[in-house]
Design a protein around this nucleic acid. Sequence first.
RNA 1: GGGCCUAUAGCUCAGUCUCGGUUAGAGCGCACGCCUGAUAAGCGUGAGGUCGUUGGUUCAAUUCCAACUAGGCCCA
Length: 932
Amino acid sequence: MNYKDTLNLPKTAFPMKANLVKKEPEMLERWESIDLYKLIRQSSKGRKRFHLHDGPPYANGHIHMGTAFNKVLKDIIIKSRQMAGFDAPYVPGWDCHGLPIEHRVDGELGARKKEMSQAEIRGFCRRYAEKYIDIQRNEFKRLGVLGEWDNPYLTMNYPYEATIVREFGKFALNGSLVRSKKPIYWCISCKTALAEAEVEYDEHSSPSIFVKFPMISDLDQLAPVLKGKQVSMIIWTTTPWTIPANLAIALHPGLKYAAVETGDNEVMILAEGLLDLCMDTFGIETYEVLKLFKAAELENLEARHPLYDRPSKIVLAPYVTLEAGTGCVHTAPGHGREDYETGLKYHLETYSPVDDLGCFTPDVEYFAGMEVFEANEAVKDKLSEVDALIKEEEITHEYPHCWRCKKPVIFRSTKQWFISMEKNDLRKNALDAIRKVSWIPSWGEERIFKMIANRPDWCVSRQRSWGVPITVFFCNECDEPVITQEIIDHVSNMVEQSGADIWFTKSEKELVPPGTRCPNCGADRFRKETDILDVWFDSGVSYAAVMENREYLDSPADLYLEGSDQHRGWFHSSLLCSVGTRKEAPYKGVLTHGFVVDGAGKAMHKSSGNVIAPEELIKSYGAEILRLWVAGEDYRDNIRLSKEILQRLTEAYRRIRNTCRYLLGNLNDFDWETDQVPYTEMEELDRWALNQLQGLNGRVLKAYKDFNFHLVYHNLHNFCVLDLSSFYLDIIKDRLYTSPKKSAARRSAQSVMHEILETLVRLMAPVLSFTADEIWQYMTGKERPLSVHADLFLPLNEEYRDTELAERWEGIISVRKEVTKVLEIARKEKRIGHSLDASVELGLSSELAEKLAPYVDQLRSIFIVSSVDLAEIDQVEGGFESETVPGLKVKASPSSDPKCERCWIHDPSVGDDKNHPNTCKRCRNVLDEIMH
RNA sequence: GGGCCUAUAGCUCAGUCUCGGUUAGAGCGCACGCCUGAUAAGCGUGAGGUCGUUGGUUCAAUUCCAACUAGGCCCA
């Protein structure tokens, strides 16, 4: 007789092989067909809301690993909060306006662009953005991210654009908006001002020149020794073209400056600490220090500009260093931020005689009309001609470049619109608001605090086409800016109807509300501002356009979640917009994650060749593995990604999947409603398993709550491996397989397996969204929602907790560990193969014997051996004395009993019955029961 | 150059912060073996760590402090 047929072996159609790459799209189709997102929304109506407000990715190009990571992390949070009992809607968004798209469109249009209107160009930009929104939407959905994909928010939607106009209007009307000349980054190729975020630093070769500025002020009093000598301040600069705009020379207030005679009656003044280095650079071998000045002694004295007949004031500034140059810093307030601030302090003009194209204005003697980078050479020549150039060379250094065209940018002063950080206490209020937000990790608070504390006014104007216009008019008569509530209302309503294009297509007459007159001079003819708003303002008001606007959303949101770069990006602009108009932050919590780096911890760059695209990862591993990676990595630090990591994750995935498959297989004949065994009637081992399950459930639920997803992953995996696979499931195999189908012993184990599976499938769902739902389809018994994602986590079940029991089993498990060690030794010696070949003899101290006494009958199955005999420790001869469990001696030997062909246990009862000569008594009883 | 952050086995993470103190844990991977009734599965045993480096505080530091190195983000 083939006894295998009399066993209850696991049976399930749930495939062992995941085949994720093929199966995931099928699951996605299923989610579409049952309209899963809507189903979840309906099922959670009226629950407490949880709002994670999506930071809009830029609608340009395919998604990369960072965007994929970010979206999946959000999805895990949404799903876990949803399953924790919240109503957690998710409205994804896209950032649509801005330079990058305009540049791409520029490139595609080429020369045609010149014949096109601004509105036509904007049309191309809009279509470009739409194209990539579609692409990215599909890519995000492919990752298993659930959300309101058919109604996302787009910063270029007309109502959104209208919101931008209205929020901008609030700043304009409350006096925060100021127009002033300030040095800003300017790309002479793109002809636009650039935000700090729009420049990137790269190697650049610049001329490095040392220039003499002869002293005008008389130093005779201060230093009689200099009387009658040709004294000059020596400056160093790497931007010769800014020399024509020089208005000052900055010294460090704490440094000493040396007056050095270099021969021919010439005296140079430069920092004492750089003296030798400079002399060496200049090739001057003999020189003599005549006098040391404190910087303060020279403050407010004047040198003469080397080219023009005007003074250059000596000023003090803390940023002067001895890193390079002479310690005397050439200062052009119109061409540098620090220079500008120093200029303000000393009441110098913000002089910036350079036009939009980067050419000197006509009033600049010698260089009028020259492009600044080209003028470097001319400036050097002229300086040389007047004998002011001491030394020139080329140096390579980090220099700001335009983030789009990659060309070097300049600092130039133009009239721009700024949101003042001080006028309405924006800085102070923002700093206060930061303190009320929960920052995860906590250091995010310090980071953004310092940024807000130190940032300059926010330059919100851009000289481009693809964006929301700054809806300000200027009076044709007096040139004063005109902005009123009526204008904002009028224009924003038009924008709401027809989009921001109307600013470019309609005339001033149509855009201005009828009857508008200049408040300054009473004129009624205006011209419109042509600048557009910084795109950071667009996304910065998303709380108003989305969270406040949709009735099923609330503001402030519970959580904003982006990469740590957004402390200066979206978290920052959103904070300023919201605090400036509502006096509070738009978020209650902010979570930041690190950046995706390669296996060695290095940033992913095209040039490094270490970039992994989400697409290829999905193609070879499946989105589920990507999701597991997102959960498994600690996002606070850099997030590493490598082949090895993916390989490890795949193994872990298989283990979790197989564990669930095994549970399904053993539950195939189990109906919870009719077959469940009450907790109190369960075997102790089964109750132990339920206790462990509660521990897991508690830990994982807490990990979800605290956003510690790597703990979710490790806990789930460890539970499957340690508690289940290698212990509980291994031990109960005998019971499950050999007992009668409907026996209490088997049903008890099945009841536990059922509870485990019900808990596991939910706990894994936010991370392993595809697999959990796949398992869900194979689960029977109760009536359940169409998808696990529409269900809730199981609450902690206090009945299943028994800490005393767990402690007792700690002891048993430690003994079991010793037994397996001894079995392994016997196996090495070829005395046994399978552990069931062995008989085990335990020598016990009286203390240990007492602990194990209640389990005498179970030890055999717990150890998965054929027999266990207990004896006093001294009476066991030979054997292995445990080091970790005091009072324990273990001896293993091959069982001398015959092996039961059915249950494979060696037992003396085998052979007692002629009808079943190769089975044990226990199995014969089962067989009898089955046969009748 | 400045701000913020990170550094524990080949990989992913615990522990250290709020108590500094006996042989620093887990899983995976690896090596070796078992099983063939979870089977392109399952089980067992074992080898892997001067807790980034150097100083300091202390009777004692992976844990506290500082500097440095490497890496990341942001800024200049």
